[in-house]
């Protein structure tokens, strides 16, 4: 058969210290955050969408100091946190698949998953920014008062709650390449927000829609933010588990598609 002997795998040439590997993950996450925070056309729609809606419906059209103020802050926070996950992850993945960047990254010795972890970090930073903006509006002009622990809970829910939407965005980003992705993502984003009671309280929707609401991850995220502002009591664990399951399922689906089709 073939007599060309391969150069033996040279362990010394390809061994990398754990410190350097960690450094590569950090460098990837840092680059991903920097590149998108420097792109206003990317960050502004994600942050302004929810804040402008909140300013209109939660502040200008609402009587400050009521339960409604708290309700609206919580539901617009859930709405705002979905954006960086769906668009920050999904749209950028779709565009980078088309532009060849993902192909280059796959051929470079980037540590496994660094690309996706980098994008997750970026989405978490933008989600934190969205929550801070909404809290600032709510606490200054929105007539909302929250104790420091509740403020921290909102931040934590925002930063971690973005992850299932990252997974969903990633899945959509593997279905479609390039500039078509934002359109498809909006078709997921806006109806899902509506059907989860983020714009109108669920009680005002038809009974069927109320019953299927738990299918949507945004419904569960809203339950968590409503608890954080003190409007809802009851166990949180089922909602946390639902979000976790959602994240795992879509992450696996997307990873499978990425491996198969790149």
């Amino acid at each position: 058969m073939n007599t060309v002997a391969a150069v033996p795998a040279n362990a010394a040439a390809s061994a990398m210290s754990p410190g350097r590997v960690l450094g590569a993950y950090l460098a990837e996450a840092r680059s991903e955050c920097l590149r998108y925070l420097r792109a206003p056309s990317f960050v502004l729609p994600m942050t302004l969408f929810s804040t402008v809606f909140y300013l209109m419906f939660g502040v200008l059209l609402n009587h400050p100091g009521s339960d409604a103020s708290h309700y609206l802050l919580a539901s617009y926070t859930a709405f705002g946190v979905m954006g960086p996950g769906l668009f920050g992850f999904g749209a950028s993945l779709a565009i980078e698949r088309e532009g060849g960047l993902l192909t280059l990254k796959r051929s470079l010795p980037m540590p496994p998953g660094a690309y996706l972890i980098g994008k997750m970090a970026m989405a978490m930073v933008v989600a934190a920014l969205v929550v801070v903006l909404l809290l600032a509006l709510g606490l200054t002009v929105g007539g909302v008062s929250l104790s420091p622990p509740r403020v921290l809970a909102m931040l934590a829910i925002g930063v971690l709650g973005v992850l299932p939407f990252c997974a969903l965005g990633m899945f959509v980003g593997t279905l479609i390449k390039g500039q078509g992705a934002p359109g498809l993502l909006n078709l997921v984003y806006l109806p899902m927000a509506f059907l989860s009671g983020l714009w109108l309280p669920l009680g005002m929707l038809p009974r069927v829609l109320q019953q299927i609401a738990p299918v949507w991850p945004s419904y569960h995220l809203n339950q968590l933010t409503q608890s954080a502002v003190g409007l809802r009591s009851g166990p949180l664990l089922p909602h946390v588990l639902a979000l976790l399951a959602f994240a795992v399922v879509f992450l696996l689906l997307a990873a499978r598609r990425l491996r198969r089709y790149g």
């Binding site: 680059s31 920097l34 590149r35 998108y36 420097r38 792109a39 980078e96 532009g99 060849g100 960047l101 192909t103 280059l104 051929s107 470079l108």
Partner: peptide
């Protein structure tokens, strides 16, 4: 090391 025919590297970096 790899240089591909087309790769849109991050424009803002």
């Amino acid at each position: 090391g790899v240089m591909l025919q087309s790769a849109n590297l991050p424009a803002t970096l």
